[in-house]
């Protein structure tokens, strides 16, 4: 599904030049659940942004679903993204002005799904993440765990092939954290590829493989399954 080769990303400010990714090469197969670990500033988030087609690399190759996407323009990336990739953020990033239902519905609107279909699919996923009873609430009215379940629902409503999770349990207590990890595992078992950035060894334990990064490079890879 994903094959990146010798990927480089450098951030420049007036005074400093930070190498975020240094000739990084990684491969993720269809249906895999990969955890990316490493200390702060090792380039995990940059990697995730590039995988998610939110950011573009300075150098190197990025093949997504057998297509070279490293040189895609904004429009093509957005198009590819909205049909194939779902995101789960540490801080949930739900839209405060929209209800649970509306938040989850949003990706379907952007991919042009008809209203009746949208309703059905949103209800399906809300049911799956067990938040159906809160469908008309606003994010502020929910607990952190509930908010993250909504965010996961939103990430999967479009049935993406890939879910990118950036510390999905970072703002949650262990109980709620486990719920979310359980949810991700289920999704993975149903065939969705997952790449998750995490600080937690516990969470990483849910994955098939752990990639450890330091200074923009892979250090080790542990295969768990």
């Amino acid at each position: 599904m994903i094959k990146i080769t010798e990927l480089e990303k450098i951030y420049r400010t007036e005074e400093v030049e930070t190498i975020a990714l240094n000739k990084l090469s990684i491969e993720v197969k269809d249906g895999e659940f990969v955890a990316v670990m490493g200390p702060s500033g090792c380039g995990k988030s940059t990697l995730l942004n590039i995988l998610g087609l939110l950011d573009d690399p300075d150098k190197g190759s990025f093949i997504f679903n057998q297509i070279e996407v490293a040189d895609f323009n904004e429009r093509r990336r957005a198009d590819l993204r909205k049909h194939n990739i779902g995101f789960v953020f540490q801080s949930f990033n739900l839209i405060d002005e929209l209800t649970v239902f509306e938040n989850v519905e949003l990706p379907l609107i952007y991919t042009g799904v008809k209203s009746a279909d949208r309703k059905k699919r949103v209800e399906e996923v809300l049911d799956k993440v067990q938040i159906m009873h809160r469908r008309n609430h606003y994010p502020q009215q929910l607990s952190g765990g509930q908010q993250q379940r909504v965010a996961v629902a939103r990430a999967v409503v479009n049935k993406p092939k890939l879910i990118l999770a950036d510390e999905p349990t970072g703002n949650l207590d262990s109980h709620n954290g486990n719920d979310v990890m359980q949810l991700l595992t289920e999704l993975n078992e149903q065939g969705t590829t997952i790449v998750m950035v995490t600080h937690s060894e516990h969470d990483a334990g849910y994955s098939h493989r752990i990639i450890r990064m330091l200074d923009g490079q892979t250090v080790t890879e542990n295969i768990l399954v």
């Binding site: 957005a78 198009d79 909205k82 995101f87 990033n93 739900l94 839209i95 405060d96 949003l106 952007y110």
Partner: peptide, 16 residues
């Protein structure tokens, strides 16, 4: 900004 960012990630077009 945050909302716009989220919406973009979710696939909102410029026109949207």
């Amino acid at each position: 900004t945050k909302e716009i960012g989220v919406r973009k990630v979710l696939g909102a077009s410029l026109f949207n």
